[in-house]
């Protein structure tokens, strides 16, 4: 609750001082590229079998998080923004995992 009524000054301060430099952005881009390369690479490793699924989920989650936290500045901005975004994201994820469960999606077909 407090996060909505925080002292506005404190927030704007972090917003100003915490902004990363272009170098950070380049580093993130590098990590993103490498992760994508690993994803595509992993995809061709046949012996991983079903193990590919958690690997890909973790890797794409990493990419998602990096873009959201750094490029979208969620790491530096008001936590309220994170609540909105990750709240919607978490709701969408859990509701549709439940739907897939109801369709017995995770049971071998």
């Amino acid at each position: 609750m407090n996060l909505i009524t925080k002292d506005p000054k404190a927030q704007s301060d972090t917003a100003h001082t915490g902004h990363p430099t272009p170098l950070t952005y380049f580093k993130i881009a590098l990590i993103l590229s490498i992760t994508t390369a690993i994803e595509v690479g992993v995809f061709y490793i046949e012996w991983l079998g079903h193990g590919i699924i958690p690997v890909l989920v973790i890797l794409s989650g990493l990419k998602f998080g990096l873009v959201a936290l750094f490029y979208m500045h969620l790491k530096y901005d008001s936590p309220l923004f994170s609540w909105f975004f990750f709240g919607g994201l978490a709701l969408a994820t859990s509701v549709f995992i439940a739907v897939l469960g109801l369709f017995k999606f995770f049971v071998a077909q």
Binding site: K6, F85, G88, A92, V95, L100
Partner: peptide
């Protein structure tokens, strides 16, 4: 809150859009 109206709106919209794409992806997987 010291936060800009439009930026707050944008984030609320993005939260909402998560549900939009969540539904589309859910449909695809089902």
């Amino acid at each position: 809150t010291g936060l800009n109206h439009r930026k707050l709106l944008m984030w609320a919209f993005l939260g909402s859009d998560c549900m939009f794409f969540g539904t589309l992806i859910g449909t695809y997987l089902v």
